[in-house]
């Protein structure tokens, strides 16, 4: 019996459903991916704190075990649903669907999906997001993009975080960008620091511009 069926077909179908949901509600859904410790939650916290008066935000937090990240977001006063993946190393589209049913986001809002800290597995699972943003930080190796090419191949924007630490680390920004462009010539970059605030206005502009593009 010939099948020719994609193994991730089921995830893909539900991802398309999520995408339809976002389109109908004119929502921008951003899938945030990175390795552990790149400052994903810090970027998110800061973004929400600075931007929550300018747009309607919702957050889905993916984490293997704890509620710590959701607590941090909750403290900012933005609606958040925590998804514990247990042993799972990535979010799948059905988890996002379930979380959306709990969140009940309003129209024209902006949804952040913070994926599990992992540059490998989340790359393969479309969640139905409009944009995938990969975060790397200057305390990591600048060759991350070619070590984890799938993730950089599938992202539209790369935030280079902890840019304030550049004088103290061996991270070559140009090299990192060149590596990322090898796997994805279309990828955009923004250099930011979630702690001291460098470059964040450009990131916020990017978000609002993408949001406006939907309408």
């Amino acid at each position: 019996m010939e099948l020719e069926q994609n193994i991730l077909h089921h995830n893909q179908l539900l991802a398309e459903r999520n995408r339809g949901y976002f389109a109908a509600k004119n929502m921008l859904a951003v899938n945030l991916v990175s390795s552990p410790g790149s400052g994903k939650t810090s970027v998110l916290e800061r973004t929400l704190r600075d931007m929550k008066e300018r747009a309607d935000f919702y957050v889905i937090e993916g984490d293997q075990q704890t509620f710590n990240d959701a607590d941090r977001i909750d403290a900012v006063g933005v609606p958040v649903v925590q998804v514990n993946t247990g042993q799972g190393c990535h979010l799948e589209s059905d988890m996002v669907q379930t979380a959306l049913q709990k969140l009940k986001p309003r129209d024209n809002s902006l949804l952040f999906i913070e994926n599990v800290g992992n540059l490998v597995c989340p790359a393969m699972f479309d969640l139905g997001e409009n944009k995938r943003v990969v975060i790397i930080s200057t305390t990591e190796g600048d060759d991350k993009p070619i070590k984890y090419p799938d993730m950089f191949h599938s992202a539209q924007l790369c935030l280079i975080n902890k840019i304030d630490l550049l004088p103290y680390v061996n991270f070559d920004v140009d090299k990192a960008k060149a590596y990322a462009r090898r796997v994805n010539p279309d990828i955009e970059f923004l250099e930011v620091s979630a702690t001291v605030g460098t470059g964040l206005e450009a990131w916020y502009d990017w978000l609002l511009t993408e949001q406006q593009k939907l309408a």
């Binding site: 019996m1 099948l3 020719e4 193994i7 070619i146 796997v183 010539p185």
Partner: peptide
């Protein structure tokens, strides 16, 4: 061989992957 390989003809990185991303159940015998 790798996502980051350049074109051997012109050394460009602008490429479209046309094979190698397959992840299918092709067939089964019952």
């Amino acid at each position: 061989q790798h996502h980051f390989d350049a074109c051997p003809h012109c050394q460009g990185y602008f490429k479209k992957i046309i094979a190698g991303k397959e992840l299918n159940v092709k067939s089964m015998a019952f």
